[in-house]
Simulated assay, not measured.
Amino acid sequence: MGVVIPLEEGKNKQASVKPLVDLTRLDMDRVNQLILSKAGSDVQMIPEVANHLISSGGKRLRPMLTLAAAQMFGYEGDGHIKLATSVEFMHTATLLHDDVVDESDLRRGKSTARMIWGNQASVLVGDFLLGQAFKMMVETGSMDALDVLASAAAVIAEGEVLQLSVAKNMETTEDDYLSVIRAKTAALFAAAAEVGPIIAGNDKSARSALRSYGMNLGLAFQLVDDALDYGGKAADLGKNVGDDFREGKITLPVILSYRRGTPEDRAFWKTAIEDGQSSDENLQQALALIGKYNGLADTIARAKHYGAIARDALSPLPASAHKAALMEVIDFCIERVN
């Protein structure tokens, strides 16, 4: 499956996260040191569980957004280091909790923490990381940043509960699903980007621009992840193609294919998802139906739509290397499906 993505200014090279990585490298070194420090505890199991996931190879895109957004507005203190670390701890805690709720065995190709240490340890270490995150937020002295990240934590939890309420329900609508990913995924992207201009003391228009950018980037990011589960390669995913299907997750390619299918097609989806009949043979049928009803192509089209909104959100800001890097991240996230 190939998708042509229109890039800015006639670019034809592959979009990359490297410009963002390069701009934030020195600050990310400080973030990584703080992560190791704040994940430490006299209770041996806490750093073991935390470091299992922290060291598992994620790109750490969310904290880089915080750093780049603060740098963009000339911030020279160290509050953005603590906020970026808080963002990463919130993300890590969410993953620990997610894997318990979803009963996941693998994450990024490795056994999940719950498979090694159990569900209780995963949940409690996630809670420890959230506590550390909030302590660092308070240390920055910014009530606005604390408010934004605390609100995001509440929204993420709401998204988890909402996902539970629609789990394995084939009558889930596209709007229902967008509400889930807006809360579970996009809210943290939005908060991560918004606290950058907050800590830099910038005005509400900059905050609004970065928040909109983060929210829509997060939506695009998750929709591409949905598509990759049915159209990617295991080496790129850090998991097996079709894992969402095997876990009975209802994502947008499935919703679109179900809605557009015949009564016979819908009966298949109910058996596969609601009744848990997720054999390899049924996965092949699911892939065929998603292809037949353009489930992947239309999911990617929606991701591109949100990517365009994210790009528009940054457009009024002055030109800079940071702005260009944040723009390129949008294309990078979407081009993962090529």
Rank of each mutant, 00 (worst) to 15 (best):
R182G: 08
N169Y: 05
S205V: 15
S212V: 05
I198Y: 06
A167P: 10
G214D: 07
A167W: 01
I181W: 05
D176W: 04
A209H: 10
F221E: 05
A187Y: 00
D203N: 15
F189M: 04
N169R: 12
G214F: 09
T173W: 03
M215A: 07
N169I: 08
D226P: 09
V180F: 02
L178F: 12
G201L: 08
F189C: 01
G214T: 10
K204G: 08
M215S: 07
M215F: 09
I198T: 02
E174A: 08
G196M: 01
A190Y: 00
A220K: 10
L210T: 04
V224I: 15
F189P: 00
A220V: 12
Y213P: 09
D225W: 12
A190I: 01
R207C: 10
A183V: 00
F189W: 03
A192F: 01
K204P: 03
V166E: 06
S212P: 01
N216G: 08
A167I: 06
I199H: 03
M170E: 01
S205Y: 14
N202H: 12
N169P: 07
A220F: 09
M170G: 05
D176Y: 02
A220H: 07
K204D: 14
K184E: 01
Y213N: 06
K168A: 14
I198N: 01
L217P: 03
S165E: 15
S179T: 12
L219N: 04
Y177H: 06
V180W: 00
V166P: 07
G201P: 13
A167E: 12
V166R: 11
G214Q: 09
D226K: 06
A220W: 04
T185Q: 00
D176M: 06
F221M: 10
D225H: 14
I181Q: 02
L210Y: 15
Y213M: 11
T172Q: 04
L219P: 03
A200K: 11
A167V: 09
E171L: 12
K204S: 14
R182Q: 06
T173E: 08
Y213R: 07
L217Y: 05
A186W: 00
A183P: 00
T185R: 03
N202D: 09
M215V: 03
K184S: 04
D226H: 14
T185A: 13
L178R: 09
T173M: 10
K168R: 15
T185M: 02
K204V: 14
N202K: 15
L188T: 01
A200T: 11
A183Y: 01
E174V: 07
E194L: 00
G196F: 00
V166H: 14
A167R: 10
T173V: 08
N169G: 07
T185P: 03
N216K: 14
G201R: 13
L210P: 02
E174S: 02
E194W: 12
S179D: 13
R211L: 12
G214K: 06
V180T: 04
K168L: 11
Q222K: 15
K168M: 13
N216T: 14
D176G: 08
Q222V: 12
D203G: 08
G201A: 07
E194T: 05
A220P: 06
D225V: 08
Q222W: 15
V166T: 14
I181Y: 04
R211F: 14
A193Q: 05
I199L: 03
A191L: 11
L210S: 03
D175E: 15
